[in-house]
Design a binder for these strands. Structure first.
Lengths: 202, 202, 202, 202
DNA sequence: TATGAATGAGGTTTCATTCAT
DNA sequence: TATGAATGAAACCTCATTCAT
């Protein structure tokens, strides 16, 4: 009852759809993004979307998962080259800024996930936090970091700092934090991560 | 079906709508929230909504604006009682957690505003940052805080820490950060905000 | 984000939708029928449909329910005027043909219900059968009808006869069964419903 | 994913598709049935369907045609062994129930055809009726059956009885009509088909 | 001959907004 | 001023059919 037109084979339709959806989700937001716009940008037919993804939300979730792995892998690689906890943290922050800058649309997607499927979002940060927590706990065990800290709380403090600096400079101004900010950041990290017991309140 | 049928002016219809929308936006999210649900909860007719607000987005924006003032006023009041910058910061963080806990729905609204109207969101944090920046700059001028810091960067670092601790404990677990986290927080703030020049990198 | 045009008040929108849907369901069939065509025929906006019915299937089910009540009420009224079981049966058959003729579209809807929601369909005939069964059992108790019959089986035999004559003449040729058919029918009913024990096999 | 990958001709692909479609049409219904599900069940590629059938509707029509021949052949064979009209009718009814039970899916297909292509359905019953009509006319000519009957009307009455008993017991309860129903049926047929002129109304 | 990726028309449903009352 | 019935744009998703391989 319904007729169709042509069907020239597609190259890499899946990749093209992912790439297009990154852009559309990132710029329009999850709700305003439409499958039609994604497929238009990808140069595929509308139905082709559903050859590769079972639903709009599913693709979105895949994108968040992908970001989760990529972010952590990228940061982990940058961190593993460093020696001290402080150096590792600094390298981690910088890697995060670089990565975010290279994937601004994907980053917006992570933030959106809060309102699409909160579990996705929590899992994203929970996993990121776990990396921090174990790194900090190790450093504490080695006597490198003040053992009075609750590693969980410190992890979230550091993630918050990274996220907000990233938002302020990378997301909003499309650049990495300027020199003054980077210097402030390293001072702050240096003070937090030294072993000296001074400075702690009662 | 059990609604009022007369046309006599509604006592505080506007306030009731705002209150209802707070809840609905906070729980359903901006997109899933419907005017119908808001008016149902407010006990007004559907059309009444448009007597007080020109659009859904407009109400949402007002809510964010409202949150912006309330948050800052609440924190400012808590802070002004304190003497040193460190005490002020600690009091500020704690006030923030309390406020967030008392207005969880409103808080979700702030986060959503990113995807409804990004300006709202930026303005919210920009204003919050401005408070921090001037407080920090004053403290630096008084020699109370390390003058090497870029106040802007430090403000975003501190806001990030507050937001993420708040998200982790208040938003997700509906409680204020536990003692260990609070202790870690005060240690961290103590180290960051002391004047001592040690600990800074390069 | 979406603007609307006008909204002249509608008279009897619900009734107009029901009437239109009867026609569209009856002629196009459940699946081919579209809400758009129903509302077009009813002269309402598309969205108006959902002011009165929660879904396409729901309206369809209501139509079948409605037919169930109407058919039985109509037949019951025709039957109650008659004295003997045979007269009642004959009157019932004729009432059925008249009713079917007056509601051809609705009748098609009943048949379709088999493939939309089988319970609807079964319930329709189950209820109709129950009426037959109790009428026949009463007549048997009074000694008016051969007590060797299984009333359930006889009910379905009679319903089948009515349905198929109705289909053959009313549905397909839009007329009541011609005289020869009516005569045959009354002969057949007469033979079946007489008390005489002759003629039974085994 | 575990499908054949070569292009060698499929053994009986056509038969396999027919068999599969029988099941899928019978269980899902015409509209809900998908070509993809049919080919999956048949173990052929999706495109292969169109090597053998020009369209979904065409296959469906073939199935109905097939049922038409099979039903009549099966009944005819059962009937031809019997002598009297009454015996033939009884044998015909029983054959019908057996056949229906063995082809429940196909039977649903016949009922659906009403809403796919009404001609298919009418032809199905028209042909079945023709068999009855000529059998009854012959019996009337031989003086075996009351010559006052309109054979056409009687044919539809008998078909209706068979269909409804079949629906009630075979389709819905997956068994042949129980003894009491069979006895009632033979009594009814016996009374209808005897030559005696008594019992007719008016 | 056999395959399955590609296609897009078409359908149902939602909901912000309007406006006659 | 308060109301809610009316509206239709817009979105997601399905699936029969085509055709390059």
């Amino acid at each position: 009852m319904v007729q169709r037109k042509t069907n020239r084979p597609l190259r890499d339709a899946r990749q093209r759809l992912i790439r297009a959806s990154e852009k559309v989700f990132g710029q329009r937001g999850y709700t305003s993004a439409t499958i039609a716009e994604i497929t238009r940008l990808a140069g595929t037919g509308l139905g082709t979307f559903y050859e590769y993804f079972p639903s709009k939300e599913s693709l979105f979730a895949q994108l968040v998962e992908y970001m989760s792995h990529e972010t952590r892998a990228y940061i982990a690689k940058a961190v593993e080259r460093e020696r001290t906890r402080l150096e590792k943290e600094l390298a981690g922050f910088r890697a995060f800024f670089r990565f975010e800058r290279a994937h601004i649309n994907l980053y917006r997607i992570v933030m959106q996930s809060q309102f699409v499927n909160e579990d996705l979002y929590r899992t994203y940060y929970r996993r990121l936090a776990d990396g921090y927590v174990s790194g900090l706990a190790d450093a504490q065990a080695r006597g490198e970091v003040d053992s009075g800290y609750d590693p969980e709380a410190l992890a979230w403090i550091l993630m918050g700092a990274a996220q907000f600096l990233g938002m302020r400079y990378v997301l909003w101004e499309h650049r990495e934090p300027p020199a003054a900010a980077q210097l402030t950041l390293s001072t702050v990290l240096g003070r937090i991560l030294s072993r000296a017991e001074q400075g702690a309140e009662g």
